[in-house]
Amino acid sequence: MIPLVYYLAGAIALYIIGMYCLASKRNMIRLVIGIEILMNAAHLTFIVFSAYRTVGYIDPLGHAIVIMSIVFAGCVTAVALTIVTYAYRHYGTLDVRKLRRLKG
């Protein structure tokens, strides 16, 4: 079995990649995907921990949490994409820099 810390390192790498994506990308769709990556980092750690509790079995709590949490990630993405759709339809751009009409 691969040691737990490798998975944790992977999850934290995913988290950092997601944060980097949110900080640097300018395309609205990419920002939404960044949110998905962040959520998946958390899901990965849940799954890994639940698998490592007792060797040979899984802890159902972690899986139950992930099953429900995936739905929330989907909900957030859906709402985000409706806003993106609206913005694109009316303003003809997906670039957040062009949306910067507000100051500070």
Partner: peptide, 12 residues
């Protein structure tokens, strides 16, 4: 939550 998400999409 799902219901609220649907309402959000409809509202936007």
């Amino acid at each position: 939550v799902l219901f609220a998400a649907a309402a959000c999409c409809v509202a936007v």
